[in-house]
């Protein structure tokens, strides 16, 4: 392992390096932070697989399940679809922010980070409203039935991840406005972005599995 000096170090997949002031790289030429982020995401894959796997197995083990064609089906699909759209938008604004920072467009990068934070916060807010409506109006609670416990476990843990991502994005936004990022110093945005895109990816799967299937 060698320590980089901020001018010539690891590269991002055969292209330009995500330069850091005090980053370090492995012999592979990849920043330690990127390796660590991907290892963390690998553990997250297994975590959500446990939840999704339990959901699928429990569902196959049941003869009856929440019926989407029934009049009293509790889930609000249009609202959740709009929320899914918001999360996709947040991933796009984050890609835009990173690209802007890499190209030295600081203001655009800061706005991209701010919009990502905003979209993420609205997502969490809409999910909180959804939970309120399910609890109060639909009477659907985690202890109502297996569907309820699966639903709250899966969407709740995902929501917690989004909330933590929003906090991280808010910190990055403040750092951005303070001028902490630039064309040669954007690794924190890229690494946090990997986490954010992963959370978006998990939601794409959860939306299909929990809400549409």
């Amino acid at each position: 392992m060698s320590h980089a000096d901020g001018s010539a170090q690891g590269e991002a997949g055969g292209g330009e390096a995500p330069l850091m002031a005090h980053g370090s790289v492995l012999k592979t030429g990849i920043l330690n932070g990127k390796i660590a982020t991907w290892l963390f995401l690998g553990s997250e894959v297994m975590f959500f697989t446990g939840l999704i796997g339990a959901y699928i197995v429990l569902r196959f083990g049941q003869d009856t399940w929440a019926d989407p064609t029934a009049a009293d089906y509790p889930l609000n699909i249009p609202l959740t679809a709009a929320n899914t759209f918001l999360l996709i938008c947040s991933s796009v604004t984050l890609v835009w922010a990173l690209q802007s920072i890499q190209e030295g467009k600081r203001a655009a990068g800061n706005w991209g980070l701010f919009l990502t934070t905003l979209f993420g916060a609205v997502f969490v807010g809409v999910q909180a409203y959804e939970y309120y409506a399910l609890f109060v109006h639909e009477g659907m609670r985690p202890d109502s039935d297996i569907f309820g416990s699966c639903f709250y476990a899966m969407t709740g843990f995902h929501g917690l991840h989004v909330f933590l991502g929003v906090v991280a994005m808010a910190v990055l936004t403040v750092m951005g406005w303070r001028g902490c990022f630039g064309p040669k110093k954007y690794a924190p945005v890229e690494f946090t972005g990997l986490y954010w895109h992963f959370v978006d990816l998990v939601w794409i799967l959860l939306f299909a599995i929990v809400y549409l299937m």
Partner: peptide, 18 residues
């Protein structure tokens, strides 16, 4: 979005294996 298309092979392996 996660740049796997442009990453080195070791990153792709880290991502795909899980």
């Amino acid at each position: 979005f996660m740049h796997l298309k442009f990453e080195k092979q070791i990153i792709v392996v880290l991502a795909i294996v899980p």
